[in-house]
Amino acid sequence: AVSDRLIGRKGVVMEAISPQNSGLVKVDGETWRATSGTVLDVGEEVSVKAIEGVKLVVEKLE
């Protein structure tokens, strides 16, 4: 699937994400809805860990 190529890629949070609410991330110039187990603020760099349906699962870049 086209989304599989995104796993491991870096992105930037465009709309804040929390465990309760999905947000938006931009990866390779495309905007995706994303979820995370932690709070991520706009502008934070993330990496794509998995894909669930049409949402990316991301975590903060260390």
Rank of each mutant, 00 (worst) to 15 (best):
G23V: 02
I51Y: 09
E52M: 09
V54M: 10
S18L: 06
D41L: 13
G11A: 06
R9W: 09
I17D: 01
L6Q: 03
R33T: 14
T31G: 05
D28A: 14
I51C: 04
P19M: 06
K26R: 13
T31P: 05
L61K: 07
E45G: 11
L61Q: 09
E15P: 00
V58E: 00
E15Q: 14
V27M: 05
K26H: 09
A50Q: 11
T31C: 05
D28E: 14
D28G: 08
G37D: 12
K55R: 14
S47D: 05
I7W: 03
E45P: 11
K60H: 07
L40E: 02
V48Q: 00
W32Q: 03
N21E: 08
G8C: 04
V27H: 01
V13L: 03
W32N: 02
E44K: 05
K49F: 06
I7K: 04
A50D: 08
L61R: 06
L61F: 10
I51W: 07
R33Y: 15
Q20M: 10
V46Y: 01
E44F: 07
V27I: 13
K10C: 05
T35L: 14
S3L: 14
G8Q: 03
D41E: 12
D41A: 13
T31D: 14
G11P: 01
V2F: 04
A50R: 12
S22L: 12
G53I: 03
K10H: 09
I17R: 01
I7M: 05
V54A: 14
D41P: 10
R9A: 08
K10I: 15
L6W: 06
K55W: 10
K55V: 14
G37L: 12
V46P: 01
D4I: 12
G29P: 04
A34M: 02
D4K: 04
V12E: 07
S36G: 06
V42L: 07
A1E: 13
G43H: 08
P19Y: 07
A16G: 14
T38H: 13
V2S: 10
E62F: 15
L6G: 02
G37C: 05
R5Y: 13
S47K: 11
I51E: 02
G11V: 03
V27E: 00
V42D: 04
G23C: 02
G11M: 02
K60S: 07
G43R: 14
V46N: 00
K10P: 13
V13Q: 00
S22T: 10
E44A: 12
G23E: 01
D4M: 05
K26W: 08
G23R: 00
E52N: 11
S36V: 01
K26M: 15
W32V: 03
Q20T: 12
V25G: 00
L56W: 02
R33V: 14
V48H: 00
E30N: 10
T31R: 06
V57I: 11
V54R: 10
K10S: 07
A16T: 13
E59T: 09
V42G: 04
V12P: 02
R33E: 14
Q20D: 15
M14P: 00
Q20I: 15
D41Y: 15
V48R: 00
L40D: 01
M14D: 05
I51K: 05
G8L: 03
V57C: 04
P19G: 08
I17F: 03
Q20P: 12
G53F: 04
V42T: 07
V13R: 00
T35N: 09
V2A: 12
G53Y: 04
S47I: 13
T35Y: 06
V46F: 03
E52D: 15
L61M: 10
A50V: 04
G37E: 10
E59P: 00
D28Y: 07
V27G: 01
A34F: 03
N21K: 11
R9N: 09
I7P: 03
K60Q: 06
G23I: 02
W32K: 03
G29L: 08
T38G: 15
K60D: 03
V12N: 05
E52V: 15
D28S: 08
V13M: 03
G29D: 10
E52C: 05
E44V: 11
V39Y: 15
I17N: 02
P19W: 07
E62A: 14
D28F: 07
D28T: 06
N21R: 08
E30R: 11
N21D: 07
G29C: 07
E62C: 05
K26C: 06
N21T: 14
N21H: 13
D4P: 04
T31M: 14
E30M: 14
E59F: 07
K60R: 12
K60N: 04
V42R: 14
N21V: 13
E62Q: 15
V48A: 02
D28K: 06
L6H: 04
T31Y: 09
V12R: 08
D28W: 06
K49L: 13
V25D: 00
K60W: 04
I7S: 03
V12Y: 12
T38V: 09
L6S: 02
S3V: 10
E62K: 08
A1M: 11
V58M: 03
L24Q: 08
E30Q: 15
E62L: 14
P19E: 06
S18W: 09
A34R: 00
K60I: 07
A50Y: 07
G23Q: 01
P19N: 05
G37I: 09
A16I: 12
G11H: 00
L61C: 05
G8R: 03
G11L: 01
V39A: 15
E59K: 05
V13G: 00
D4V: 06
G8W: 03
K55E: 11
L24A: 12
E44H: 08
V46I: 14
G53T: 04
Q20H: 11
I7F: 04
E52P: 02
R9D: 04
T35R: 09
L56V: 09
T35S: 11
A1R: 02
I7E: 03
V57E: 04
S18G: 08
V57R: 09
D41W: 10
E62H: 15
V25A: 10
E45W: 10
S18E: 09
V42P: 09
G53Q: 04
E15S: 08
P19H: 07
K55L: 14
V27D: 00
D4W: 03
S36T: 03
N21Y: 12
S18F: 11
K49D: 03
I7Y: 04
V2K: 03
D4A: 05
I17T: 05
K26T: 13
K55S: 14
K55N: 13
M14A: 09
V13P: 00
D41F: 13
L61W: 11
R9H: 11
A16L: 08
E44Y: 06
I51R: 07
G23Y: 06
L61P: 05
V54T: 15
L56N: 00
E15K: 13
G43S: 07
T35E: 13
K10E: 12
G29T: 06
L40F: 08
T35C: 05
V2T: 12
L6N: 03
S22A: 11
L6P: 04
L56G: 01
T38S: 14
S3C: 05
G43D: 09
L24R: 08
G8T: 03
T31L: 15
K55I: 13
A1Q: 12
V25E: 00
V57L: 09
G23N: 01
L56E: 01
V57K: 06
K10A: 09
W32A: 03
S47H: 10
P19I: 08
A34D: 00
V39I: 09
I7H: 03
S36H: 02
M14T: 13
E44N: 09
V46S: 02
E15H: 07
R33M: 08
A50T: 06
E59S: 09
T35Q: 08
A50E: 07
V25M: 02
D28Q: 11
G11I: 01
L40Q: 06
T31K: 12
E44C: 05
L24T: 08
V2H: 11
K26V: 10
D28N: 08
V27R: 00
V57N: 04
E52A: 09
S36I: 01
S3K: 07
L40H: 12
L24W: 15
L6Y: 05
E45T: 13
A1V: 15
I17L: 05
I17Y: 01
G29K: 15
K10T: 09
V13S: 02
Q20N: 09
E30G: 12
L61V: 13
G53L: 04
I17Q: 01
P19Q: 07
E45Q: 14
T38L: 15
K60A: 11
K60M: 05
S36N: 02
S22M: 15
K49E: 05
E52W: 08
G8Y: 03
I7A: 03
R5H: 13
L24I: 15
G43Y: 07
G37Y: 12
V25Y: 00
L40C: 05
M14Q: 08
V48I: 12
Q20W: 15
K26A: 14
R5G: 11
V54P: 11
T38A: 15
L56M: 06
G53W: 04
